[in-house]
Nucleic acid binder design. Structure first.
Lengths: 235, 235
DNA sequence: GTAATGAAATGGTCATACCAATTTAATATC
DNA sequence: GATATTAAATTGGTATGACCATTTCATTAC
């Protein structure tokens, strides 16, 4: 019952200013390239102090909606979809976070392999197998896409019959792909790695097909440790 | 050829402050839930004015990394709060998903126990032990709070030395607590359960202290399976 | 019409003050 | 010793006024 009520926090002035300016931009009353009133003018119009206006403009700049130039004014930016979510952007700036996310993923994928081995339906085991066969088909032609690898892991997570697991792993996988899809595709097309990777995927599939949870977890762990060790060598 | 060169714009002070605080968060020196120094203190430490610090904090709040409370201070948020926000919405719509979240958490806590056993410093092992001792002290008086349990799990996750693990688990833990803090506190105060739970927490601590990863993982798995089985009996 | 110079406008930073909310410490009571 | 109440301290929120740095605009000279 506690979830029905949420703490009420009064809005800061800067938040209200942000909302007003956002509305003017999304309504088209402030257009891309247009200059907004100066900080001093805005403060006078809104009946607030200049620091409060500055805080709101700072926030809108962070959102990518405005752009300030010292001495020159503040302009509305074009509404392009270029801004990455903050976490993905931070991961681009800091490869150590990516390595840590890989490790978080490892824990979750191993757990997923374990659960899948204990719960998968025959149809789900077939789908995992089919994705491995698709890898083998593309391997003959020089390597497989990161989509096929995603299909494999997605099928395993689906077989856990845990919706939350699927959502969390999907979110982590998207963050992951946003950063290293190019490197992964490179990995899946190197001749010296293809057979090793294919063998690892088969081992995972076979452990799940045998409904052996511990074996599935170990096989997944070995696969992901190998990937984690091999990716840095590609750069 | 013009795209090779970008205009050079001197960085604002607030931008430099943002970068410094971001680094402290991604390096794990500022952890989720932790309070950062006050605005006045930060201004003194950085040798800048309080409005400049405030602008930086405003920006970090917009990015979802910090959260300020008037009179109360400014706290680090989990990096994954934003990206995993849909989970909270899903759980509000469908409380049955709590069981699945418990299972996701189980996988991650077991992995954390394993990593902590292999990596914890002596000081970290001491902190885990201290939180178990605090449980024992409160147990004599009828049970312990969910804060003490959080401290125990937080100490284990900190000992993994994986910042992303800490952030993801923190987000999941807050989702978890938001739903069943009352039930957990009830669980931790039932006379027939207190001794069992204390024994389970001791077993986890001892396995980590023995630096036995597999044993730590099994102990954590047993504990969380027991909790998962027992919670429904309280309603 | 163009170039140089000065003034004005604008954003960036700062010091200081005060208000509002929260936390902590001190005191009184049982 | 525990609990409740009150006061003080701490912290974030907002404001005023000042000054610096950069850009834009107006004026003047050629």
């Amino acid at each position: 019952m506690t979830t029905l009520f949420k703490p009420i926090r009064p809005k800061k002035l800067s938040e209200e200013i942000v909302e007003q300016i956002k509305s003017l931009i999304t309504d088209g009353q402030l257009k891309p390239g247009e200059k907004i009133p100066s900080e001093r003018e805005m403060a006078a119009l809104l009946g607030v102090s200049r620091p409060s206006v500055r805080e709101a403009i700072m926030v809108l700049e962070t959102m990518g909606l405005l752009e300030s130039r010292q001495g020159g004014g503040t302009y509305v930016r074009s509404l392009t979809d270029g801004t990455l979510a903050p976490l993905a952007a931070m991961m681009e700036d800091n490869p150590e976070l990516l390595k840590e996310l890989l490790e978080v993923r490892m824990g979750m994928e191993c757990w997923a392999a374990y659960l899948a081995a204990t719960r998968a339906t025959d149809a789900e085991i077939r789908e995992i197998g089919d994705s491995v066969e698709e890898m083998a088909r593309q391997a003959v032609r020089g390597g497989w896409s990161s989509e096929v690898d995603s299909r494999f892991h997605y099928a395993i997570t689906t077989a856990t019959h845990n919706t939350m697991q699927l959502h969390v792993l999907n979110t982590i996988h998207e963050l992951f792909l946003a950063t290293i899809e190019v490197a992964l595709t490179k990995l899946y097309s190197q001749p010296q790695y293809i057979e090793v990777l294919l063998g690892q995927h088969r081992a995972i599939y076979e452990a799940i097909a045998a409904r052996d949870g511990d074996r599935a977890r170990r096989a997944m762990g070995e696969h992901l440790e190998w990937v984690q060790a091999t990716l840095p060598r590609l750069s």
